[in-house]
C-alpha cells in the first residue's frame, strides 16, 4: 500500500500547524530584545521548518531533514561562540564534574570505551553521536586541557574521505560498496571529532 495516497488532506492540515508554530516564534522574535533569548527563539523556529520538511512524508523527507538539522546546529554553534566573545563571557571559569571518585577511578574510561566501541559498531551518523558522547564524557570527568590538533586533523581527514566516497559513487558506481564504507567511516569520524571538540571547547576549568 502506498502511503502517499493518504496524505492528501493531511498535508495542508500539517502545514497549518507548522506555520502557526513558525508564526508564533517569529512574532516572539519581533518583540524580543535580549540577544541570548533571540538565539534560543530562533532555534525554536528552526524546528518548525524541519516540520515543514517532514511533511513531504517520503523517504526523501528524512534525507532532507538531516542537512536541514545540521545547518541549524552549525550556525547555532558559531553564533554562540560569537555571543561569548561579544559579551566577554570567555574568561568565566567553567565548573567541571567535580566528583572525586570520577577523577581517579577507571570507571569513566570504561564507560567511554564502551560507548566508543558501540558507536563504531553502529557506525554512520548515530554511531558518531554515541562515540562522540563517550569522548565528551571522558573529557568532562578528567578536565582534559591538552591540544586538540589530532582531533582537528582527524576531522579534516574524515571530511576528505567523505568527499572521496562521493566521487566514487558518482564516477565509479561499480565500486559502490567501497564508497558506502568510506562514507560510513567518514561520517563516523566526523561526528565523533566534532562532538568531542565541542565538548572540549569550554574554556579553562575552575
Amino acid at each position: 500500500m502506498m502511503w502517499t495516497a493518504a496524505l492528501w488532506n493531511e498535508y495542508s492540515v500539517g502545514l497549518v500547524i507548522a506555520f502557526t508554530c513558525a508564526l508564533t516564534g517569529f512574532a516572539a522574535l519581533t518583540i524580543e530584545r535580549d540577544d541570548l533569548h533571540k538565539l534560543l527563539l530562533i532555534d525554536l523556529v528552526e524546528t518548525a521548518s524541519l516540520a515543514v520538511v517532514a511533511l513531504i512524508g517520503t523517504d526523501l523527507a528524512e534525507a532532507l531533514i538531516l542537512p536541514g538539522l545540521v545547518v541549524g546546529i552549525a550556525e547555532l554553534l558559531a553564533l554562540s561562540q560569537i555571543y561569548l566573545t561579544k559579551e566577554e563571557l570567555q574568561h568565566y571559569k567553567v565548573k567541571r564534574l567535580n566528583i572525586e571518585v570520577m577523577m581517579i577511578s577507571p570507571a569513566p574510561i570504561i564507560i567511554s570505551t564502551i560507548l566508543v566501541m558501540y558507536g563504531i559498531i553502529l557506525s554512520g551518523f548515530t554511531g558518531g553521536g554515541v562515540a562522540g558522547l563517550g569522548i565528551v564524557f571522558y573529557f568532562m570527568s578528567r578536565s582534559f586541557t591538552g591540544n586538540f590538533h589530532v582531533l582537528e586533523i582527524a576531522s579534516g581527514i574524515s571530511w576528505a574521505l567523505w568527499v572521496a566516497s562521493f566521487f566514487v559513487f558518482m564516477f565509479l558506481p561499480e565500486w559502490w560498496y567501497l564508497a558506502l564504507m568510506g562514507a560510513a567511516v567518514g561520517i563516523l569520524l566526523k561526528v565523533i571529532t566534532k562532538m568531542s571538540l565541542v565538548g572540549a571547547m569550554w574554556g579553562e576549568p575552575e
Binding site: 523517504d59 526523501l60 528524512e62 534525507a63 532532507l64 538531516l66 542537512p67 545540521v70 545547518v71 546546529i73 552549525a74 550556525e75 554553534l77 558559531a78 554562540s80 561562540q81 560569537i82 554512520g124 582537528e152 576531522s155 571530511w159 567523505w162 568527499v163 566516497s165 562521493f166 559513487f169 558518482m170 559502490w176 564508497a179 558506502l180 562514507a183 560510513a184 561520517i187 566526523k190 566534532k194 571538540l197 571547547m201
Partner: peptide, 29 residues
C-alpha cells in the same frame, strides 16, 4: 534507503552539509 539517498543519489547535498558544519566550526574554533 536513507544512505542510498544521502550518499548516492543526492550525495552532493550531503557534501555541502558537512561543509557548512566545517565552516561554522572553523568560525567557532
Amino acid at each position: 534507503i536513507l544512505d542510498e539517498i544521502l550518499y548516492n543519489t543526492r550525495g552532493l547535498d550531503t557534501v555541502f552539509e558537512p561543509t557548512i558544519l566545517f565552516i561554522a566550526f572553523a568560525i567557532a574554533a
